[in-house]
């Protein structure tokens, strides 16, 4: 997840434009070799084992390497060996931006040094530390949010980003969140209400073209127009993510939440009553917005 936050950091510093960043992300993504492919190439894992871990990943909030160790397919030493053979992805992204002439080497080194220092990124993380660092990066990203539910919002966002990586792709970057929302006109969107101690309406919104591309990735099919399967894909992704979030909340915190069926809407102004936060995620195919709406009584 460091690469997605590095992109966000570069944007916030004005070091890149969104177009320059997306171009570099696409190049980095096409050159990236998944740890599973590395493990297979090194003769450490079979394709069946890799598939088994990929399936397990869709049911667990754990990364590929952790699950490989848990399932006994790789030792911790083998994971270290595999990861040592790759540069951190944010370094590759920065290098591509240098090659593209967006900034020079010395500017890159300065940006990199401040990114690493500000986020306390270590060259090697102990087990569990990676998650802690990402959590603290998310906290910084959400620094302007003041809400009694902030801790839940962070958990929610953390899983949302992981689910984007798992089901849509990791070639995205986070744009600055919008916290003072008074009105919002949605394009193609799904919304779903969570009830219980964490009372939340989540909205997944994007333009029609973005929805077509998003659905294409989600169901691994090519769509040429906005149809009922594209619409169902947006709803299904939100519903799946919210369901997995409920499982996490139940397993990790013994919090049981209720979930209402998702609803779909198109090209209309949303009713903004309580505090609403927008988290825009920039993919090469467009911007995907996740909105978290608190009920009116929750507003500080």
């Amino acid at each position: 997840m460091f690469i997605q936050f590095f992109g966000s950091y570069l944007l916030s510093k004005g070091a890149v434009s969104a177009e320059q960043l997306i171009d570099a992300i696409e190049k980095e993504s096409s050159a990236y070799v998944h740890p599973g492919a590395l493990a297979m190439h090194a003769g450490m894992m079979s394709s069946e084992q890799i598939e088994d871990v990929r399936i397990a990943q869709t049911h667990n909030d754990k990364n590929f390497e952790e699950l490989c160790v848990e399932k006994g397919y790789l030792t911790k030493e083998q994971v270290d060996e595999l990861l040592a053979s790759q540069y951190p992805r944010y370094l590759s992204l920065g290098q591509i931006l240098v090659e593209n002439g967006v900034f020079d080497e010395s500017a890159f080194h300065e940006l990199l040094a401040s990114y690493i220092a500000e986020n306390q990124i270590k060259e090697k993380h102990l087990p569990g530390e990676n998650g802690e660092t990402i959590h603290s990066m998310l906290e910084k990203y959400c620094a302007h949010i003041e809400s009694p539910d902030k801790a839940y919002h962070l958990e929610y966002l953390n899983l949302f980003l992981n689910n984007l990586v798992r089901f849509i792709g990791d070639d995205f970057t986070l744009l600055r969140p919008v916290t003072d929302v008074s009105s919002y006109t949605a394009g193609k969107y799904a919304s779903q209400h969570t009830t219980g101690i964490y009372d939340l309406t989540s909205v997944l919104d994007m333009s029609e073209d973005t929805a077509i591309a998003f659905a294409g990735r989600y169901v691994s099919e090519q769509f040429d127009e906005f149809d009922e399967i594209v619409q169902a894909s947006i709803e299904d992704f939100l519903n799946l993510h919210n369901g997995l979030f409920h499982v996490n909340m139940s397993n990790s915190y013994s919090i049981e939440l209720g979930l209402e069926p998702p609803a779909f809407g198109s090209d209309r102004m949303l009713n903004i009553s309580g505090s609403t936060y927008i988290f825009p995620v920039l993919f090469p195919f467009g911007i995907v917005n996740i909105l978290l709406q608190e009920p009116l009584s929750q507003t500080l």
Binding site: N239, G243, L244, H246, V247, N251, L259
Partner: peptide, 8 residues
């Protein structure tokens, strides 16, 4: 068949 596979 559900995404909400909580123990409850």
């Amino acid at each position: 068949v559900s995404s909400v596979g909580t123990q409850q």
